[in-house]
Design a protein around this nucleic acid. Structure first.
Lengths: 207, 207
DNA sequence: CTCCGATGAATGAATCTCCATTCACTCAAG
DNA sequence: CTTGAGTGAATGGAGATTCATTCATCGGAG
């Protein structure tokens, strides 16, 4: 009884997505076979095409749906309140911590999103932009509170912050997760971003 | 006379590499055909295999040799002297400026290097590490001069700096080079890195 | 209640396309 | 004549996608 019948339990689509995360993160999109994903999700090759238009669509759905969960989750954590600086800290810690909770997903996003954003025609990474929005929101709030420089260019800063975190996650993953534990790194980056590289009060030659 | 004969002028290998940069940056590694690169470099398909072991090797050679030139070039610019802070500024401006001078190369490195570092067995991006070394050297020098916080974790900071720059370059490229001119962005990032996000003297709640 | 045809989810072998790589051959130069 | 760089058509393998087929389930008829 548990094997056949239409839409056996309704979890097939999700099983496929989860398997895709695993396979894509292990081999990369181009080196992953649809048949591998089928095997890993306990489904026939053809079944994947009942739920996704094609291999590209599988990857895009993965980005949007899983990234959507990540955005919703971090928004929930931030809603708890606190100052903008607190929130930035929470955001950063949460980002680095994703590596432990959802390492496969983070790896796929880090490594494949660029490729896809650049080469897949008519794909806009909507949920990824939302993630960047979360950073903007925090920075703007910080300005209002007077904690963050009012002349900060938020749209450059949010990219810089994301880029820094992303690169550090990548380092962690590529090192076989041996160097720089996420929580240690998070603290270090927080300080770098908040205080900068210089010794307090040093003349930096503005301009 | 100019068409036939062994190693016609000795520039074939370089023509192939240059064409590869163009094609890979346009289509991505996996969507590029070896025959396209052959056509673009005015060479037969088989000729490519006289100079490179296979398609992967072509990409790796491209990374190492072109990146090597980039490293040598930035080192030359930095040798001029100045304070560590000046040098960091030069480094950042140079990095962002590469997008104008060598956009194809920068795009290939940004988009393909991650894939390759992660999935190509036994490939260590030596020249890329050297590029990171350049940042470390500047930061260490800054510590010695007393301009940079002595407790800064250099190996986290250099990755964060690279990541920030890389992401900003990517944004510029993906926006069709319409948003955030490199030189403007460079100035903004410099300030972010040197002074941080906060208003001077603000309490950040260290620890 | 039982039987039967309709439905459509699921399957996975077969197909179809694509492309990296090879290699038998060409020919300029020494 | 010999050498070997260069060629590009042919090959072989891979893997995305298709589709004819299977079978659990369901609803209506008897």
């Amino acid at each position: 009884m548990p094997r056949r019948g239409p839409n056996n339990g309704g979890d097939k689509r999700d099983r496929i997505l989860r398997a895709a995360v695993k396979i894509f993160s292990r081999n990369g999109f181009f080196n992953s076979k649809v048949s591998e994903i089928a095997r890993a999700s306990g489904v026939a090759d053809g079944t994947i095409y009942l739920y996704f238009k094609n291999k590209d669509d599988l990857l895009i759905s993965l980005f949007e749906e899983k990234m959507g969960e990540v955005v919703a989750d971090v928004r929930r954590r931030l809603a708890a309140g606190g100052s903008a600086i607190d929130k930035l800290r929470i955001f950063i810690e949460n980002h680095m911590d994703l590596l432990e909770r959802e390492s496969g997903l983070v790896e796929v996003i880090m490594v494949e999103l660029r490729q896809s954003t650049k080469f897949l025609k008519d794909y806009t990474p909507v949920k990824f932009f939302e993630y960047l929005e979360v950073i903007s929101d925090i920075l703007e709030e910080g300005k209002r509170e007077g904690a963050i420089r009012p002349d900060l260019n938020v749209s450059v800063a949010r990219r810089a912050i994301f880029g820094a975190l992303d690169e550090l996650c990548l380092t962690y993953v590529l090192s076989g997760k041996r160097k720089y534990h996420p929580s240690v790194t998070a603290a270090e980056v927080c300080r770098l971003l908040l205080e900068g590289l210089c010794v307090p009060g040093a003349d930096v030659g503005k301009g």
